[in-house]
Computed example of a mutant assay.
Amino acid sequence: MSRLQLALNVDDLEAATAFYSRLFGAEPAKRRPGYVNFAIAEPPLKLVLFENAGQGGTINHLGVEVADVDAVSDWAARVGTQLVTSEQAESTCCYARQEKFWVEDTPDDLEWEVYAVLADSATFAGEDEAAASACCADSDSEAAAPAQVCCAG
């Protein structure tokens, strides 16, 4: 199972959740403060909503959710080390334990993650600050707010 991930910044999380529930005929798979994700079967899509006032209607980041750690490794090998900007083994991000790597679309400055969810988590970005920074940092900040650029679970 692989599916594209679209992570969006939204101004009003409840209004956006209601809209996307109706649009895709699906209820959220996970709800947490400032965060909602949908695991949509048709079309295969992981839709992630980050409440980020003033940034609504913008892309947070893009990704590909894959079935397991082996698929993450296969993607990383295919992409090649020159494009992989960050590897995160067993990181906690967006209320999930994940195995992932990030690449940057240098022509257009878009960030993509390729990840597999290992398990659910009670915390957004792990217990220690280093894990939170690694998960949720964007190119302009070493420790950005979680809604800036993060991940899905």
Rank of each mutant, 00 (worst) to 15 (best):
S2I: 13
R3N: 14
L4N: 09
L6W: 01
A7W: 01
A7M: 04
N9G: 09
D11L: 07
D12S: 11
L13E: 06
A15C: 12
A15E: 14
A16W: 00
A16G: 06
T17D: 02
R22E: 15
L23M: 14
E27N: 15
E27K: 13
A29H: 07
K30C: 15
K30P: 02
K30Y: 14
R31Q: 10
G34Q: 06
Y35G: 00
Y35V: 03
V36T: 07
V36S: 02
N37C: 11
A39K: 14
A39S: 15
A39H: 14
A39W: 10
A39F: 12
I40S: 08
A41C: 05
A41R: 11
P43V: 01
P43Y: 02
P44G: 11
L45I: 04
L45Y: 05
K46I: 12
L47P: 00
L47I: 05
L49S: 04
F50D: 02
E51R: 02
E51V: 02
E51N: 04
A53I: 10
Q55E: 08
G56P: 00
G57A: 08
T58Y: 02
N60W: 03
H61N: 08
L62S: 07
G63D: 02
G63I: 00
G63C: 04
E65C: 10
E65M: 11
V66Y: 00
V66K: 01
D68E: 05
V69P: 06
V69E: 11
D70V: 13
V72E: 01
D74W: 04
R78V: 10
V79E: 05
G80V: 07
T81E: 15
T81Q: 15
L83C: 08
V84F: 03
T85P: 06
T85A: 10
S86E: 14
S86H: 12
E87I: 10
T92C: 08
Y95A: 01
Y95C: 01
Q98V: 15
E99A: 10
W102C: 07
V103R: 02
E104C: 15
D105Q: 09
P107T: 09
D108G: 13
D109W: 12
L110V: 12
E113R: 04
E113M: 06
V114T: 08
Y115Q: 06
Y115K: 04
A116C: 03
A116H: 00
V117M: 11
V117C: 07
L118P: 01
A119Q: 09
D120K: 15
S121C: 05
S121V: 03
T123N: 03
T123F: 03
T123M: 06
F124P: 00
A125R: 08
D128R: 09
A130G: 03
A132W: 01
A134Y: 02
C135R: 01
C136M: 13
S139H: 14
S139K: 15
D140N: 12
D140M: 10
E142L: 14
E142V: 13
A145Y: 05
A145P: 00
A145T: 06
P146A: 14
A147P: 11
V149F: 07
A152F: 05
